[in-house]
Nucleic acid binder design. Structure first.
Length: 913
DNA sequence: AAGCTGGAAGCATAA
DNA sequence: GGTTATGCTTCCAGC
């Protein structure tokens, strides 16, 4: 319908605004269109162009209305065959009509009040990524309304997504370029967040006109609205039935509006653009809606929310971020104490404008944002809080955000078609508990969202959203908000509660895979991507007005019914190494494992080929319940070096646990060759069919005692430290500290990880040694002294500390005192462990136990290395009983770093270990 | 009555 | 390309 109405205008637009002036541009394809957008003259032209249809509209009709020969005549078969991308224009007088009949268009038209709706980029910036359930805007096959037909249409046009992707990518590029433009080009809007801003700005403009002045419009990219807001604000109802915009919302008031699939009524959804960016980003049409009618708050409050929510889109890689404008935060300013504090001066129009201008003009791109570096505290301006996929430490200075009680490792998420499945439970009883220490001056808002648990860096999970649970049993008040497309719960941390909160108000909502996967820019797949981590953040006001942001994450939580019931999970195992001769008893504790499970040891080549595989014999007589004892099979090869293999538990063909690292030690007594000392090997983790190794599951021997692990999961062997497979590396930042991935200094989507299999006997030089033992460290000493030497391995994960190396130090600082035992093969091969940089002085005290070779001595008289805790112990040395404070480096026989596999350990200051 | 929970049917998709 | 196994989503029923 729209296509028919507007085709003429589109042509007018093309001929008038692009074609004649840029004959070199082929506007028939998204590619060239985007090129045009990257060029300033065109941008300016576009900026002044009359309003046109929102992209979603174009997008919508593209799928159904293959275009005529006017495109093919220009020689673009793709466009001809599948004109999925069309630069369409609506005459200025048209948008009024359309806007009156279509809410989404009304948004665009409204913003077109200052002639920015002509933003063709917005039209090109197709809104697949927006409300994932917005059928009219997202080609979801799962939509209850003719989803299949849509898919048919979609599938019949194979180039559709391709074309779209091209456009999207180029538009992003164009946006980046434009963002850097000295003149506030239309693309100066904050990247993908423009949409979010768009709606809010629209709301501000029309509901709180005073909140924004016209001068802002140049900075308010036209893209804001036309590009995103339609998706954001237009419900499927509004699209499909053209309902008046004034129709009051009929959202369920329950935060989890249970909705029967069979009774899906498109008319029961809020048609209002004010409400469309529901608390369930994209998912909202179905429910999970906080029953607030006040999604649009006061100007100040909304602005604050806006600042919180919109900025995120500014420069986050689209691959990891929802670029939708739908996911903006229409936040309830009422009682928005936490977010209001993020405003420099809420309510002051000028300041607001400044803030906005700052956001649009000064918030750096992904390439220029001043990423936290060593020595750069996680401080952010109130107007520029970190995106949700931004790595943050859990501790800085005296402040620490800690998850005192971890959630249960399994929580069945509910679909929107279901009722709530309740809040996340703690592993034992009750609920997770979060506590902020080091600050109690005033209430702080704790932000909670659902993050990923894969082997990439932590980021909001595309397929799960936090869900506010209400009920009489819920004692913790919280609010739902949308930040950058991710639903976030805001929970107050009150001084009277000791800055602690029991998280009994947070459930997990599962979004349908098909809906998410079809979103533009979404690269994750939902299938078998059912583990999440609960992420907590706080922003602590600083004296200078900035905010100190801290973050902590939970252990991974399995969210699928089936997986939770059937997938074996190894919680801990011990020992973590033995002779290549095998034969040792290996105790494995976990869930969904039994004596009927298979315990398979395997060695894989870097390319994923299986080099060796052997079942471990189960010893049922020694197994009880979920504690299974198996006999380690002999390694089939002779080796002089420790060999890291993996094992996993299998309950069936596709019911395998994550792989766990296990080390075979050469059956050599005494002195090891230097090569053995260099056995710290790095390999790329193969996310093969066996395991995808989400970080928190420490797929390879995660020997670090979990700081937050529930006690019952801890297994202490008489010989070994417990091996835990729980907390993510964010909770084990020491791993990140010592073995950050080389690529960690740059954003990366790869899942390269380190496998640290063995560290030969050595003396470490602590990154920064301290002269006094911090109190918190002392508690671990008994642990060290009573637990014999042990191997530790760094979990093959880098995701949680993310490519952004800068977070490493703070993350480490969040790590409670940990003890790591390093198996000593010989004391005669002291590897060179470079001195850590001064920045490391901010690290928390960490203890590394470097025990002697087991065969040589059973004494736990291990050497310890302390990493200075945050701040307080700078430039001091820890006294180690029986040892001089400074752990010396033995100058001789130092293998080169390369042989240690440490060559790629990058310090935060750029130096390499 | 509403929310929570466990189970499972039926379909889709991967193997 | 057909079959089977597995995963996803929805629905039901009971507490």
């Amino acid at each position: 319908h729209i296509a028919t109405d507007c085709s003429g205008d589109r042509d007018i637009f093309l001929s008038k605004w692009i074609l004649p002036r840029r004959p070199d541009l082929n506007v028939r394809t998204p590619h060239t269109s985007t090129q045009a957008l990257t060029r300033q003259p065109v941008l300016q032209e576009l900026h002044s162009h009359p309003p046109c249809l929102p992209s979603s509209d174009n997008y919508q009709h593209v799928g159904y209305q293959p275009q005529g020969a006017q495109y093919g005549a220009q020689g673009n078969p793709r466009a001809f065959d599948c004109p999925s991308i069309q630069i369409t224009s609506i005459a200025p007088n048209n948008h009024v009509e359309l806007g009156s009949s279509q809410e989404g268009l009304a948004v665009g038209g409204a913003e077109g009040g200052y002639s920015e709706a002509s933003w063709s980029r917005g039209q090109l910036y197709l809104p697949l990524d927006s409300c994932y359930r917005d059928q009219a805007l997202c080609p979801s096959p799962c939509s209850s309304l003719s989803s299949r037909s849509w898919m048919s249409d979609l599938s019949s046009c194979e180039s559709f997504s391709h074309v779209y992707d091209d456009v999207e990518g180029e538009l992003r590029d164009a946006a980046r370029l434009a963002l850097g433009s000295p003149i506030g080009s239309p693309m100066g809007s904050p990247g993908c967040g423009g949409g979010a801003f768009g709606v809010e700005l629209w709301q501000q403009k029309y509901q709180h006109p005073l909140a924004f002045s016209p001068q802002l419009s140049p900075h308010q990219s036209p893209r804001q609205s036309p590009c995103h807001s339609p998706r954001t604000s237009v419900t499927e109802e509004s699209w499909l039935s053209r309902r008046p915009t004034s129709r009051p919302t009929s959202r369920p008031t329950s935060p989890c509006g249970k909705r029967r699939h069979s009774s899906a009524d498109p008319h029961a959804r809020s048609p209002s653009p004010h409400h469309s960016p529901s608390p369930t980003p994209g998912a909202s049409p179905r429910g999970s809606i906080t029953g607030d009618d006040s999604w649009v708050g006061s100007p100040a409050g909304t602005l604050g929310s806006l600042l919180m929510s919109g900025y995120q889109e500014l420069d986050v890689p689209s691959k990891t971020r929802k670029t939708s404008g739908s996911q903006l935060g229409l936040l309830n300013s009422q009682g928005d104490m936490g977010l209001e504090s993020f405003l420099d001066s809420p309510g002051e129009e000028g300041r607001e404008q400044d803030s906005l201008a700052e956001l649009f003009l000064q918030v750096p791109s992904h390439f220029s944002w001043n990423k936290p570096k060593p020595g750069n505290p996680p401080l952010f301006r109130t107007s520029s809080p970190p995106p949700l996929d931004w790595p943050l430490p859990s501790q800085f200075d005296q402040c620490e955000l800690k998850l005192e009680v971890q959630p249960r490792s399994y929580h069945r998420a509910h679909y929107e078609t279901e009722g709530s499945r309740g809040s996340i439970k703690a592993a034992t009883t009750g609920h997770p508990v979060v506590k902020l220490t080091g600050y109690s001056e005033q209430p702080i808002s704790l932000l909670l969202f659902i993050g990923t648990a894969d082997d990439r860096y932590l980021r909001p999970h595309s397929f799960y959203q936090v869900h506010r649970v209400t009920g009489k049993m819920v004692t913790t008040s919280c609010q739902e908000k949308i930040m950058g497309g991710t639903k976030v719960l805001e929970i107050p941390l009150l001084p009277e509660n000791n800055m602690s909160a029991s998280i009994d108000c947070a459930g997990i909502l599962k979004l349908r895979n098909a809906d998410i996967e079809l979103k533009k820019g979404e690269t994750d797949i939902g299938r078998k991507n059912t583990r999440v981590r609960v992420v907590f953040r706080v922003a602590i006001p600083q004296l200078d007005g900035r905010m100190l942001w801290l973050q902590t994450t939970s252990v991974p939580v399995e969210c699928s019914q089936r997986s939770g019931q059937e997938l074996p999970q190894v919680e801990s195992f011990s020992p973590t190494c033995c002779s290549v001769d095998g034969g040792e008893e290996l105790l494995i504790i976990g869930s969904n494992i039994s004596s009927t499970s298979r315990f398979i040891f395997t060695e894989k080549a870097p390319d994923g080929r299986s080099l060796w595989e052997m079942d471990a014999r189960v010893m049922p007589e020694k197994s009880r319940g979920s504690s299974i004892v198996v006999e380690v099979p002999p390694y089939n090869k002779k080796t002089k070096d420790p060999v890291q293999v993996q094992f996993y538990v299998s309950n069936g063909k596709r019911r395998r646990s994550l792989t766990q690292n296990f080390t075979f030690l050469p059956a050599v007594r005494g002195h090891l060759p230097a090569a053995a000392a260099a056995a710290v090997k790095q390999e790329r983790w193969e996310t093969d069919c066996i395991s995808h190794n989400p970080p928190g599951f420490c797929p390879s021997s995660c020997q670090m005692p979990p700081c937050d692990r529930v006690p019952e999961l801890v297994y202490y062997d008489s010989r070994d430290l417990p091996v835990h497979c729980g907390p993510s590396s964010q909770n084990h930042p020491a791993a990140s500290l010592m073995f950050p991935h080389p690529s960690s200094s740059a954003p990366s989507q790869t899942s390269s990880v380190l496998h640290q299999t063995f560290i030969p006997p050595q003396t470490f030089r602590a990154p920064t040694q301290t002269s006094s033992l911090p109190p918190k460290t002392s508690s671990i000493r008994p642990q060290v002294s009573t637990i014999p030497p042990q191997t530790f391995s760094i979990p093959p994960q880098t995701s949680s500390f993310s490519p952004k190396t800068s977070s490493i130090l703070p993350q480490v600082s969040a790590l409670p005192p940990q003890t790591f035992s390093v198996p000593s093969q010989t004391s005669s091969v002291p590897p060179q462990i470079p001195t850590m940089p001064p920045q490391a002085s901010s690290l928390p005290l960490q203890t590394f136990t470097i025990p002697p070779l087991r065969e040589q001595s059973s004494s736990p008289s291990s050497r310890r290395v302390y990493v200075a805790p945050a701040g307080s112990q700078k430039d001091t040395l820890l006294p180690i009983p029986g040892e001089p404070p400074g752990i010396k480096q033995e100058p001789e026989d130092q293998p080169n770093l390369g042989s240690l596999g440490l060559q790629e350990i990058t310090l935060d200051d750029g130096r390499m270990l």
